[in-house]
Each structure stands twice: as C-alpha cells, then as structure tokens.
Design a binder for these strands. Structure first.
Lengths: 248, 248
DNA sequence: AAAATAATTGCAAGCTTTTGCGAAATACTG
DNA sequence: CAGTATTTCGCAAAAGCTTGCAATTATTTT
C-alpha cells in the first residue's frame, strides 16, 4: 500500500469518524503504528487534520481547490456564521477579507445589490466576486503561496499601510480564552496583524470546532477584536470566559 | 512497443486502478523498470499523473481536481502555438505572463519539472499554477477588473518597474503589418507596454485568426517584439511582410 | 545508401525514502 | 502520585529511486 493511498484513507475515515486513535488506524490499514503516526504528522503539516493526545481529529480545512466550491451546506455551522456576518455589511463600506474558506464563502454570499469595496490577498476570493457588479475589488499582490492560495510578503504589507478600511473579517485556525487567536503559519500571523491595523474594526468568524483550539502562532489576544461570530448562541457555555468581546 | 503506446497504456491502467507500482508496470508492459520510470516522468511533466515513492497515482485520486479540464483541444491551433511557446522556456527563467486565454493555457501546459518564476497580473493564471511545484508565482496586485479577470492600475505599474524578467509572453487581440499589435482596452495597452519594458524580450503568441485584425489601441509596432509565435508555418503567405520579427 | 545525429533502452552502483522495532519520554487517569 | 496508555526517538533493514554510461535503434543529413 502506498503512503499516499493510506493518507487518503485516513482522511476519508476522519470525515466520517471525527476522531480516531492511531492504534485503530494501524490495525485498520495493516501497517505499523509508526507508519500511521508519520502519515498523520505529514497530514497535519499540510493542515488537513489535527493531532491530539489519543488520536487525530478532523480540521475541516476544505481546500477551495478541491472542488468544494459553493459548498455552504444549508443549515450547517458555516451557513449560520456567514448569515450573521452578512448583517455587519453596509453599503459603501470598505472591507478587508483575507484568505481562508470562511471568507471565501462569505464573499460568495454577499448580496449582489450591496455596494462595497473588498480588499483581499486571495485570488480565489477575488474571482468569487466576479459576478458582484457593485463590489469593487482591490487585489493585494506579492509572492503567491500556492498552498494557501494567498499573496503574502512585504509588497502586501506595504500596500496595506495605505488603507483604512471599515471592517476586517479575519479567518483563524484556533481561538482560545487565554491563548487568543492563533494560526499555523507565522508569516500569515504577521499579515493578519497588519490587516487589523489597516481596518477600523476587526471581526472574527469561526465555527464551533475551532473554539478552544490553539495553534502555533498568536495573532492577538481575544480582546483585541471587536466582535466574534460563531455558529453558537452568544449565551452558550462554550463561550463563557471570553471577556471583552462582543459575541454574536 | 512504441513509447507513446506504452504511455497510453499506463494512463488507461491508472484510470482503472488508481495506483500502480513501477515494478508491476514494468512486468506488465514487458520493458525495463527504467523505461517505465522515464515514461512516468514524462507523463508527470504533462500533469497526467503523480509519481510518488512506491509507484504512481492518478492525480485525480489525490486531488478531487479531476473536473478541472485542460482546455486545449488536441491538434487545435492553440495547441500548436502553445507547444511552440513552451520551447522558449528554460530552467530558472523569470517570465511575465499577462491575462488572456492563450497565456492561461500556456501556464497550464508548463512542464511540472521546469523551474521558473512567473510574474502575472492574472489571478486565474496564478491559480492554474497551483500544482506546479517548481514554479514560483509573483502576483501583481491592484484594482481587479472582473471583466478581464486581471489586476491593473498604478500599483501594478509600480511593482513592474522593479522587475527585469527574461521573457514576456504578450497576449493581444489583433496583429497587423502596419498597425502593429492592438487591443481593445486602453488601460491594458499601457500596461502591456510597461510589461515589455520590464522584460528583456517579448514574445507574442497568436492564433491565425488574429492575424490581420486591428483593434482600438496599439501596444507597439510589430518590430518591437522579439518573436511572433503563430500556429502557421513561418513561411506561410499570411505572414509575408511582417518584417523585423522572428517568426516561429 | 552511407554517415551523422538523435532518441531510446537497459544496466549497475550509489543514494534516498520508507518502515518497524524497542527503549525512553511524555501525557493522561483515578 | 503511581500506573497506564500513548507518543517520540534513534536506528538499521528493506524497498524504491536516480544517475551516468554504453549499447541499440530510429531519424535525418549528406
């Protein structure tokens, strides 16, 4: 069995199971514990799952590449988040949208009648707005990171310095009471800080499963953002202790 | 057995089996391991499969990107133009590709093994290079023109000033002996001039039907470009009178 | 048709990746 | 805090891959 094949199987299993322990995987795939372990490490490096003590959990990192366009499931967590986020949009606003699936789907769902300027470093997101006649798009250029499908680097930062947007919708990998907003890529964490600085207020959109997750690099502590949008009711117990933020 | 025949068999087998290891292929096709290996490298260059340690997998297996049709018709005019254009590419070159369909398809057909830097103002083109691991992409940012799906404006021009690329592949709407290279959009005509200035040499790729066509805005006279690639034989009568250009 | 050139093939030696094992370290549980 | 479960690490064997070379076959040129 090829390594790639195995990794594919692990991912498929994870879609169904949500959490699997490595021993079971090892039996199931008929390879040693170590091989599974190494596969899982590789997959984690690619951001496709998250390793925890006792097994692996799905990371719901849908690659826009993977054909899952127009992928907001009716009534799903993501749809709830997006519908809440859309309420923040007003005519003639200038908003920054960074890369990431949530923002991509948010962009797709922007009402066609709304007049907006969208600043983004994500080519797929820019293209998702092709049919939005009233949305002007400013694309930030720089070195293009294929893996994340975004532009990053000094050029992007420089261009950002000249902007004063009304809103910034930030995507993150994890959000935690004490560790704040975190992400897996260092450069991106810096970029997101700069995007915050380029906007009057910052809104963070996350689905439930990212709550309590801590990733490698902090962007900022919780209280620096102006609003946190989740699919949960603002009174939900999972959100207790996130002080200083408007919950939506 | 001919090489092409063998490669066809490999692809067919892969369609059915999703994966296969090179030793088995070697037995099946009754040629040495090395020949199979070299076939597989060629196929990988064309993006038709993915080589991994232990064998090959059909690349639709790893990525659900299968639906992404390669848009060049076999034996069509465009394919001829593109195959000629690819001969100009050498390892470690820095090339500028502007928007337009010819360049988009050219980008798709760049061999996966080629190491290049591609500078572009076209988000779709940047994304078309997602699977080209050896191609670094620099995305030019600015105002995004949805209709053409390219970035244009002063930011793009400024970024261009700092580049000294080896080659610029220019797309045009029309080419004519006396009126030169022309295009429908004024701003774009200026941008293309700037791209010419940012590259050591400029190559123009056109299919037959654009020859003799004159559009609203001239980019430059014919003799300013270094090579003209068409689907026609360089000796073809349609090309008589285009002086001062290398015909390919 | 002969010579020159180019493309293809197979081989062998050397190199890299992958794998499983056992010991050691670390994280959870009651 | 001890005990158990889980994870990590280093290593060496095995499997697989690459590279240069020389022989062969095909193609083009003279």
């Amino acid at each position: 069995m090829l390594k790639e094949e195995r990794q594919q199987l692990i991912l498929e299993h994870l879609k169904a199971a949500k959490k699997i322990n490595l021993g079971d995987l090892s039996n199931m795939l008929k390879v040693s514990y170590d091989s599974v372990r190494r596969d899982v490490i590789e997959l984690e490096d690619k951001g496709l799952l998250k390793k925890v003590h006792g097994g692996v959990v799905s990371n719901s990192y849908l690659n826009i590449l993977a054909g899952q366009r127009k992928g907001v499931k009716k009534g799903g967590d993501l749809e709830i988040v997006i519908s809440k986020a859309l309420k923040f949009l007003k005519n003639n606003q200038i908003i920054i949208l960074d890369g990431g699936t949530t923002n991509f789907f948010l962009a797709e769902q922007i009402p066609k009648s709304l007049t907006l300027t969208v600043i983004t470093n994500s080519p797929p997101l820019a293209m998702a707005l092709n049919e939005h006649e009233n949305v002007e798009v400013i694309l930030l250029g720089g070195r293009y990171y294929k893996r994340y499908q975004i532009a990053m680097g000094p050029e992007v930062s420089n261009q950002l310095k000249r902007f004063n947007a009304d809103l910034y919708f930030m995507g993150v990998n994890g959000i935690d009471k004490t560790k704040g907003l975190t992400i897996r890529n260092y450069e991106e964490s810096i970029l997101k800080q700069q995007m915050m600085a380029a906007a009057k207020s910052t809104i963070c959109c996350v689905v439930e499963e990212k709550i309590g997750v801590v990733e490698a690099y902090q962007i900022c502590p919780i209280e620096k953002i102006d609003a946190l949008i989740t699919n949960l009711d603002p009174e939900n117990y999972s959100l207790i202790g996130y002080d200083g933020v408007v919950m939506v």
